[in-house]
Design a protein around this nucleic acid. Structure first.
Lengths: 223, 223
DNA sequence: ATGACCTGATACGTCGGAGGTCTTGAGCGA
DNA sequence: TCGCTCAAGACCTCCGACGTATCAGGTCAT
């Protein structure tokens, strides 16, 4: 195994074992390199790799620190990976989202606060009746993010955030080519919000499923 | 932005745009570094980072290639990230798994082949009535993996694979401390398999939920 | 003619050192 | 006390050199 890979494993080990805790500062490059028995150049490769997936936070002029290791932060790296997937796997991502999002919406129905409900309502109202497709999709992302956050599960939230990225393009494409897509989306958002207000988890789940399934169905018929 | 980060973005761009396709070979380090306008050392940091998350495959003496970019391969990197999470987020991972796995099991009920069913049966038979906890957990992972693979969604499969890692330790712990855990797990596995044989998606889903919920409930009461 | 073996070219792996840039905090003056 | 200056510390980038692994092509014995 290459010395750089060893260094990655050793640093990972130090964190997992608890020798390095979130927020801790690592020894400076030259010292750490000496400790691990490799050159500064090779160590930098290891640090850079761990930095890309948000394990380490490197600050020029200051030092290198262990990140908070929050699920939210670490799963952000997921979206980077997801970006590489080609269109032929979008359907599989969408299928996973179709499983997760209705469940998250149902969970949110039992936990969401009145303030959150009001905020979501205001958001929909602000958009108006005939928004541009770009505005709609942006609002769509925000709307679903707000709901999923109310599910109270940060792992679930981050995961859906990462998965939503690749389907965004598809939704824009749909909005541009399918006439009633905009009106339909607005209608379904209102329905989901209504179910949340009623604290009706099953209705919220169903509307969420319908919402995603319509995108899925359109995409399947188009590809 | 640092030159290395720029290089990461540029290489990513080349792949996403299609200029580099899966399996393609990159120019050699010195040339690519010159093309992107940075030193070989800095470029190597970028390549190493992309290599960690399985975007690039570096072969000494040969060259650097774009991987297949299969969801399975790319989501392997997820388990690396998940390893860093501490026990206090295990419950959130488990909650997500509780959503995904029953759905995957239900999907599998409609698609699983007779050969797969026989293989799963053989696997359970081989384990016997009183396996060691380690064997049981290993078999448990294999059992669920086999089922999820039959769901036909590779993204779902890889995701669950990544999420199952952190809960493994918890399950071992449980097996060691809760008396009837082993027998209960064996019983539930048989039940899931039976539902799959009957092509009863709803029964499969329910048994799967019960199976995971029992771990979740125990964990919640213990922490 | 065929196979194993050797060898050179090629490309990645590692290293040490030299400047450069940014952040931080101590020290100084108003 | 507040704000500014500046030097130390740490990361950033680069260069050049050498080590090591792989592959292709040629050589030689069978």
């Amino acid at each position: 195994m290459a010395v750089t890979d060893e260094a990655i494993e050793k640093i990972k080990g130090m964190i997992v074992s608890g020798a390095l805790r979130p927020g801790d500062r690592l020894p400076k490059e030259s010292e750490l390199a000496a400790d691990l028995g490799l050159s500064r150049n090779s160590l930098r490769e290891a640090v850079r790799a761990l930095s890309l997936i948000r394990i380490l936070d490197v600050r020029q002029g200051d030092g290198t620190y262990v990140t908070s290791l929050d699920p939210q932060l670490l799963l952000e790296a997921l979206s980077f990976v997801v970006d590489f997937h080609r269109d032929d796997t979008v359907l599989e991502f969408l299928a996973v989202r179709r499983i997760l999002e209705p469940a998250a919406t149902a969970m949110a129905a039992l936990r969401i606060s009145e303030q959150q409900l009001d905020a979501l309502t205001a958001q929909l109202d602000k958009l108006g009746d005939a928004p541009s497709v770009e505005d709609l999709v942006a609002c769509d992302l925000e709307f679903h993010r707000g709901i999923v956050q109310s599910s109270g599960n940060s792992v679930l939230c981050s995961l859906l955030d990462g998965l939503s990225g690749p389907t965004t393009r598809a939704r824009i494409w749909r909005g541009l080519t399918q006439e009633d897509a905009v009106a339909r989306t607005l209608r379904e958002h209102r329905a989901i919000l209504g179910a949340l207000r009623d604290r009706d988890a099953e209705a919220a789940r169903s509307w969420s499923t319908v919402h995603i399934a319509s995108v899925e169905q359109w995409l399947r018929s188009t590809l």
